[in-house]
Nucleic acid binder design. Structure first.
Lengths: 364, 364
DNA sequence: ACTATATATACTCAATATGAGCATAAGGAG
DNA sequence: CTCCTTATGCTCATATTGAGTATATATAGT
């Protein structure tokens, strides 16, 4: 025990020394040098379809179809160059502009991932990449030509996340049985129960309800269960017995941990909708209330009650009429609205609340 | 315009090349090498006082008093060593144990900060440190001896955040007038209004209400207004005219951006309380309901309604009686409760809800 | 012009959640 | 045994929420 104390004191001294040097390592101190990758999930919604920018790499496509998603696709990303960019977010904005031609409006840092083995498929010992994920919203849908960046519907990567027409068939027919099987493969009784409990909570089986915000939890579960392509790619030895599975198993894959970052982005955006007026970043200047509702539904993946949605908008003072109407809607013309930017000064948490967790609206 | 397009395509190609190399730079590629610092705000609550572990550096103290907070104090932190730690969180846990003797239970990543100038006081060009902040909770209050780590009350660093006995005098007497002054110093009319609106929203002036979660927003505002020590330390040229101000101006300072990380931790914890049962990480195995309430109040900094608090606990099934009672309370003996871990499997968001944003309870 | 069929918008109603308070119970100190 | 203190049970008005009905106003087709 005395030796342990001594050890502690020594290690502490090391760290304090690190601190006193101003937290700065000299350039030739390789031991802690790490490359930082900035990753952006850039989201737009067009025609009730949430889209995300994806960089395609034509050289190494596994499918012949140039439009089909491919496991060499990924989010736009690039390195953080401290010498040129004062802050992380400025670095991100700069090269997103260069790469896609988009000028980012709303951006938000999501999470910093540093797992080894999520990036490098072959467990090498090359310098680690720590990736910082960002969410960015835009209402532009034009990408600079001459790039390999394209918009892709985000539900292509997460087909189980779109509940707008009720529970996706995929869940009952594929996910439910495979997760049941995975639960039974746990070594002991407690582990089996734990796995199944988790599956229920994630996907709303049995007594649990679907929670549209748990996008990341669901993806991580599928990853651990070896049901997404990336799991088999990263840890082929663990999933050797599942080699017969259809490829891509569930949803379209992405390089590295990009699908995980996209999952984080989706979950965060779905949550943020409810207490911040972020939807309007995805809308044109003027819109009908139904268009706004459809955008919210597209992102959250669930249907919401029309009249109550309007009531909340009114009470929150989130929108104001422009006086004009749109006749493109089919039936009675809809009044056009604009976002009332003033609410940002007035109310503390002006979101577009979704139904909390009660039963959901049936699809139309 | 054509040249712009060409430029874009070229830059894109560069990034794609980066991507195709597997997002891995060779060891001698110094341009993007960055040191990653892992920072932990480790929180415990004892006797209704939220405490945070602070590392003191005796060598360079500005005050003679060894117990007084000092601008050479900071959160425990250390470098991320990719070679030794598989994930960021494992790295954090390892050296927090070594440094403080604490074994972290609940931990949560907060945010990744990368601002130059927040770390390096003298705007040097040494390699950048990107710091990843973590929040960790514990119910142990023993620190390993032989270290320079001590517990400090967190309201020492944020005296304006404790509203348990009503609005702190500091706000009306110091913060309000100084922010008013700062608002008037804006170059134009719109800027003045913008500054004051922000101050009102942050501190609940005029029509706004106090929102206990906006800890970071408030600290950032005070930083920008030059009212905290760190602002004057980092950018002395901007605050030359305020040289006469008392030092430390508002709250105790910390090294680097550690007070910002602590602010992030406080805000996140205050928010998390409401929808996750994290308080119990700070409680002993058995506790009375008032002890639990006092802990919630200590963290959130506001008083809550006793009977309603109990009603929520019951309805949520968060606790169960142990059958025993505690007579240490003064009046009628209080039943002892324990946390019902099962709720984690049952309910989706079992938090300890605080009053949302209505008027608050008067202090007792 | 009339009808069917869209959607838009206004209003109602029950169930539940929330904020605030009163009333009673059960210990200890004097 | 009286007072003080905290615990715990219960009530009540109000706000919020989920869900539905009723009416308005356009277009398309006959």
């Amino acid at each position: 025990m005395p030796s342990r104390r001594k050890q502690q004191a020594k290690d502490t001294a090391t760290v304090i020394d690190f601190a006193q040097r101003g937290a700065v390592h000299t350039a030739d101190d390789h031991s802690t040098a790490v490359t930082i990758g900035l990753n952006a999930a850039i989201v737009a919604v067009s025609d009730e379809v949430p889209q995300v920018t994806v960089v395609r790499r034509p050289g190494e496509r596994s499918s012949g179809d140039a439009d089909a998603p491919d496991d060499s696709d990924g989010l736009p990303f690039g390195p953080f160059e401290p010498a040129q960019h004062r802050t992380l977010e400025l670095g991100l904005r700069t090269w997103v502009d260069e790469q896609t031609g988009l000028t980012l409006g709303y951006t938000e840092q999501l999470y910093t991932f540093g797992d080894r083995g999520r990036h490098a498929a072959d467990g090498d010992h090359s310098p680690q990449v720590v990736s910082i994920g960002y969410l960015a919203l835009t209402d532009e849908t034009d990408l600079a030509s001459g790039t390999d960046t394209v918009w892709q519907p985000w539900y292509q990567y997460f087909p189980w996340e779109d509940w707008r027409s009720g529970e996706p068939d995929l869940i009952r027919s594929v996910i439910h049985p495979l997760l049941k099987k995975w639960s039974k493969e746990a070594p002991d009784r407690a582990g089996q129960r734990q796995r199944w409990d988790r599956a229920c909570q994630c996907f709303g089986f049995e007594t649990s309800r679907w929670d549209e915000e748990k996008v990341l939890e669901r993806y991580e579960l599928l990853y651990e269960a070896g049901l997404v392509f990336e799991a088999q790619r990263d840890r082929p030895h663990l999933h050797a017995d599942k080699i017969d599975m259809v490829r891509p198993p569930l949803g379209a894959p992405m390089i590295h941990d990009h699908r995980r970052i996209l999952a984080t982005a989706m979950g965060r955006l779905r949550g943020k909708l409810k207490y911040r007026p972020v939807v309007f970043e995805l809308m044109p200047a003027a819109f009908t209330l139904l268009e706004l509702q459809r955008t919210v539904e597209a992102i959250s993946g669930v249907r919401i009650h029309k009249q109550n949605f309007r009531r909340l908008l009114e009470k929150g003072g989130l929108v104001e009429s422009t006086g004009e109407v749109s006749t493109k809607t089919g039936g009675r013309p809809a009044a056009l609205f604009r976002f009332r930017r003033e609410v940002l000064r007035e109310r503390p948490a002006p979101g577009v609340k979704l139904p909390s967790r009660g039963p959901r609206i049936k699809s139309p």
